[in-house]
Amino acid sequence: MEATAASSLKPRRGARRRRSSTLTGRDRMWLWFMVGIPAFLHIALVWVPAASTVALSFSEWDNLAPLSDISATGFRNYWIVFTIFEADLFGALFNNLMLVVWLTVCSAIGMLFAYLLDKNIRGTAIYQSIYYFPVVLSLAVVGFIWKSTMFSRDRGLLNEIWPGGPVDFVGDGTKLFSFDIPFLDPALGLSKNFAALLVAMAWRHIGYIMVMYLAGLKAVDPALREAAQIDGCNEWQSFRRVVFPSLRPINVIVVVITVIEALRAYDIIAALNEPRGTDVMGTLVTKSLLGEGGGRVGFGSAYGVVLLLLCLGFIIWYVTNHYRESEI
């Protein structure tokens, strides 16, 4: 019964689609062409390497011998990562988590700056330029600048003015606070040098977010604010109930940017030579995969898969929760 119902439905549905289609064969060819090439490139350049990484994480390869020398090792790399290098792994994950928290705070500060600068106070353009300036620099360059001119123990500006003698902002891996985890030996915590790195990252991140919100605020209809004012809203109420909701498209983008920046953080830490206590997932992956020592392809890939799962998890959760129900 069902089968006949389905077969009787099928041609009708197909016929309707054909009837409603206004695309000629040529159009359709072009459509395939234009969708196909980016899709092909995306799959070839993003998903094939990602899938290879997953495959390699179950193997052992020294990156040297012919491909036939890759030997399957099952979950051995993961076992090593989670039981022997666990202090490195969880330390890095904790730092990534710290970055998520910290960059969220910075995003809020960036929003505040944007809100204040949007009020046409005198010299707005100058303030905007000052806050935005660090954004034009790559994070690797930001790392260099802070390392050599601000943090350097012997020559750094901060150490000249720091009360109570010089501080080793770059190398001091002692923890500011920490949590004892039963199975981890060095307790998880925020090391001093990573806290210093967070400051340098904020320097750039705040300006970045500020500019995005400035653009968003320009698009908010001034009539909305006026209406709110006439209705007797105070500043906070008008921001909370009127301006902030109308910034929703920007908020979505900022959340994505903030979390992805936090998860993929790499360049500024590499620029500081990966001091102890500052490892994040990105640096763990590259340490094992790159360089002439890069003879641990499987092991480095296992780190990479952990990072991939984290990023994918966030993106899937976010997209399903925030894109589907809104019409952004």
Binding site: S138, L139, A140, V141, F144, A270, A271, K287, L290, G291
Partner: peptide, 22 residues
């Protein structure tokens, strides 16, 4: 050391040409 070279190389790329080059 090997580690240093790797970083110098990568950082050099980043400093000169920005993140994309990195």
């Amino acid at each position: 050391g090997a580690g240093l070279n790797r970083r110098d190389f990568m950082i050099g790329g980043g400093a000169a040409l920005g993140g994309a080059a990195l």
